[in-house]
Amino acid sequence: MSERLAVRKTYKLFIGGAFPRSESGRSYVVTSSKGDFLANAARASRKDARDAVAAARKAFPGWSGATAYNRGQILYRIAEMLEGRRAQFVAEITAFGGVGAKQAGDMVDATVDRLVWYAGWSDKIGAVVGSANPVAGPYFNLSSPEPTGVVAVVAPQEGPLLGLVSVIAPVIVTGNTCVVIACERAPLPAITLAEVLATSDLPGGVVNILTGSPAEIAPWLAGHMDVNAVDLTGADPELAVTCEELAAENLKRVLRPPAGPVNWLADPGLERMTAFLETKTVWHPIGV
């Protein structure tokens, strides 16, 4: 009896709910922290980034128009799906090296908890950051948060799963759509996360994940006139400056990279959600 052939997984991009190879046909070798071969990942080009922005823009009206309750349900669903793939994520994180199985398992659990935590915020953030304003006149004056639009995210270069989910979840829970450049050295959990997102009722295009070099792709996203905000969490200082300059052209919102190392296990607070919200204020006459 012949030995069964191994079925190797092809790691591809995640754009508009589909898994295309890079338009450029390029790939790069992903190794563990010790230098052992793990897989070939797609190396996204600027045209993949452009396609991803088009997909995110297309998904925006539907996603931002969905009820907060519905978005919360879908985020919770992502948590459920992620929980079901726990073993696969633990294997990918430990294969990369640097952490043991126990610690990797804790990371995956924290990721699931993070998603559940943000899912709960979907219908509460409006009550916390919105307000009924006292004004000198016969008006109701109400401020409410609205999503900024398409957000380009440079995912953190450490914490390939928890860090990634900790930057994606706050962006999409409020109704934004995003294009994410995954951690360059350890992109495999990001692509597996894409498989989770694809099976979680998340509409195609709400999250688009590119693997490759942030230094190559991020400036194109930062300069793109149809991107409304950039999250530079994973950008090195030099790249962050370049991107912020490019982002000024159409006055994108910019979330600068943190000053020091981030403890992704800590309570994230509201900052990452409020960074990508606009405040809409309406005046409504009273007693007419």
């Binding site: 452009r50 922005v53 194109w220 793109h224 006139m225 149809d226 052209e249 159409n250």
Partner: peptide, 9 residues
């Protein structure tokens, strides 16, 4: 301009 244009403009 060397940057991707957006339909808003």
């Amino acid at each position: 301009t060397g940057r991707y244009a957006g339909p808003d403009y």
